[in-house]
């Protein structure tokens, strides 16, 4: 999903930077507020950032004969809501643009918009949808991770099609072309990323239960000592 340095015309580069900037600033403030008000969140915030860091460094083969990398932005979106990931995702992209010649400074805005804004929000929407319709936490996490991944790559394809429309078939033709590069390759990766998210959450549900309850990801359960009382109460458990 990294648009290479210089491969967006200046107008697009500036436009996407302006579009992404408020999200990133808002995200930075969300991170600062979270850490100040709930210092115990720092650990999990670190985990969310680290997850994106690892996953976006690893390029995986896909059935289409090409390779691509996951994004890992769904995890933080589920835990802390999407704004936080706007900052964390952009930090990852900046690291890769500066040190790896992967992505770029002129395309940072567009790349941040797809990976750090659209991805987390789409993933969060999928998560909410699954939870609303009665799905459990783990199916919700799977949906969030997979959708965040796919949505990011679809956004990149559309951004490129807009900047480089096909000479004959225009935007639609170019979109079909770029989607065929990005979207199909990404399907198995999105599934894999969903499974990894489920694995990680299975650990978090056991060891980080108090945090997950405070963040509203898990419903509060009674303390072990109070359990008999809560069971006796009418309508205490459904």
């Amino acid at each position: 999903m990294h648009i290479a340095e210089g491969f967006l015309p200046p107008a697009h580069a500036i436009g996407w930077t302006i579009a992404a900037a408020p999200f990133v600033v808002h995200g930075a403030r969300a991170v600062v507020t979270e850490v100040r008000e709930n210092p115990e969140s720092t650990l999990l915030l670190g985990a969310a950032g680290a997850f994106t860091f690892v996953l976006s460094a690893i390029k995986l083969p896909s059935i289409t004969g090409s390779s691509s990398h996951p994004t890992g932005t769904g995890l933080g979106a589920v835990l802390f809501r999407p704004p936080v990931m706007a900052l964390l995702g952009t930090v990852v992209l900046l690291f890769q643009a500066l040190l790896l010649a992967h992505g770029g400074l002129t395309t940072l805005g567009a790349n941040a918009f797809s990976m750090a804004v659209v991805g987390p929000w789409a993933g969060y929407a999928a998560y909410r949808l699954v939870r609303r319709s009665g799905g459990g936490l783990l199916p919700g996490v799977f949906a969030a991770m997979a959708v965040a991944d796919l949505a990011t790559y679809v956004t990149t394809a559309l951004q490129l099609a807009w900047a480089h429309p096909d000479a004959a078939s225009g935007f639609a033709g170019a979109a079909a072309k770029f989607l065929s590069v990005f979207a199909f390759t990404q399907v198995p990766l999105a599934i894999g990323e969903g499974l990894l998210g489920v694995l990680l959450f299975r650990v978090l549900v056991v060891s980080a239960r108090p945090e997950l309850e405070r963040l509203g990801v898990l419903r509060r359960t009674p303390e072990p000592d109070e359990a008999p009382v809560a069971e006796a109460a009418p309508g205490g458990e459904r």
Binding site: H2, I3, A4, E5, F7, S67, H164, K177, F178
Partner: peptide
């Protein structure tokens, strides 16, 4: 197993041959 990012770059160079990375 070429990276999709570089495939997209090649696609641009093919279809939009006049484009120079600035």
């Amino acid at each position: 197993y070429a990276g999709t990012d570089s495939q997209a770059t090649e696609l641009i160079e093919e279809s939009d041959a006049g484009y120079e990375p600035w």
